[in-house]
């Protein structure tokens, strides 16, 4: 346990090993038959239980109303698949624009959130920084309480952010939970690394960019994913702060396709709109999911074992 090569070199080491990953290493004993078949069963069941609903959602989105009615709601095998539901949605007036808005918000927001979170987490992870303890408590406090909707609205208005895209980013810039997690990770980076860097004459900024961030790709990927998903899925702030429908993000637009009041009680006077076509509701689920499906494989490599192997010579 001790000294370190430079992180860059360590990652190179890792890259070199990747080819051999699919095989069981020589030192590992062969798996027991019972163990591996139990594992196979569990995995297969899991995959089926997790996939089947998606297949149902996808199939239903491709089914005709006739088939959906005949099946009573969900269709597993559409006999004559149709993209009708998708074309209905995609030909809507502002869908294309809304997708672009969402992408821009998600990318900009995630980058800004990550930067702010990383810098604050880094500053709070080091001992001896004046004020870091009270600041940490201030952050933790935000996990437990919440400002109300109306004060938030008034604040956003006073800052002149109504009808601005910044209203979709700034109010949720840092998530305390993500921050605490990031900080915990930074604190787990071995002290020896900092010392070695300091002996080399590196300052706080240099240590962050050359040591901490490269060693923290995993947590940055995870927290980045959480931020990205939050930005992508958010609709409430947009509904509240944007009067111009031309600026709406895609999730808010998609929700209008599934406007659906539940059965109103007898004394709940009201507007009752009949449920939308089931195929459209399901197509909305699929469309909302697509970018997540596209993003995940790119992040997956950071969750793969052995990323840091070799960083620390044991």
């Amino acid at each position: 346990m001790s000294l370190i090569t430079r992180p860059r070199a360590s990652l190179a080491v890792n890259r070199g090993r990747r080819g051999a990953k699919d095989q069981r290493p020589a030192w590992e004993e062969p798996p027991s038959r019972l163990g591996s078949s139990a594992k196979a069963v569990v995995i297969t069941v899991l995959v089926i239980v997790m996939t089947l609903p998606f297949v149902t959602v996808l199939s239903t989105s491709l089914a005709s109303q006739k088939e959906i009615t005949a099946a009573g709601g969900f269709v597993l095998f559409p006999t004559e698949p149709t993209f009708q539901a998708y074309t209905t949605i995609l030909s809507g007036g502002i869908v294309t624009r809304a997708v672009l808005v969402s992408l821009a918000i998600t990318v900009t927001g995630t980058v800004l959130s990550l930067l702010t979170t990383i810098t604050l987490a880094y500053a709070l992870s080091k001992r001896g920084v004046p004020g870091s303890k009270p600041v940490l408590l201030l952050v933790l406090f935000t996990l437990l309480f919440a400002p109300g909707m109306i004060p938030m609205y008034v604040l956003v208005k006073e800052l002149g952010l109504l009808d601005s895209y910044w209203a979709l980013i700034l109010p949720g810039l840092v998530n305390a939970f993500n921050l605490v997690v990031m900080r915990a990770f930074f604190m787990n980076i071995p002290e020896e690394l900092y010392q070695a860097a300091r002996i080399d004459g590196a300052g706080d900024w240099r240590i962050l960019t050359r040591i901490v961030m490269p060693l923290s790709k995993g947590v940055i990927a995870v927290v980045g994913l959480f931020y990205a998903v939050t930005y992508w899925n958010a609709f409430f702030n947009a509904m509240l702060y944007l009067n111009d429908t031309g600026k709406w993000p895609i999730q808010l637009v998609l929700r209008t396709y599934v406007v659906q009041s539940k059965q109103l009680n007898a004394d709940q006077l009201g507007i009752t709109h009949m449920p939308p076509q089931q195929s459209i509701s399901m197509a909305v689920v699929m469309l909302a999911l697509l970018p997540i499906l596209a993003l995940y494989p790119f992040l997956q490599k950071y969750f793969t074992k052995g990323v840091l192997t070799g960083a620390i010579k044991g």
Binding site: L115, T116, T117, L120, Y122, V129, G131, S132, D204, W205
Partner: peptide, 13 residues
């Protein structure tokens, strides 16, 4: 440097 790094996040909260 650390205080400067802390500033944007703190300002946000």
């Amino acid at each position: 440097v650390m205080l400067a790094l802390m500033a944007p996040g703190l300002l946000f909260f």
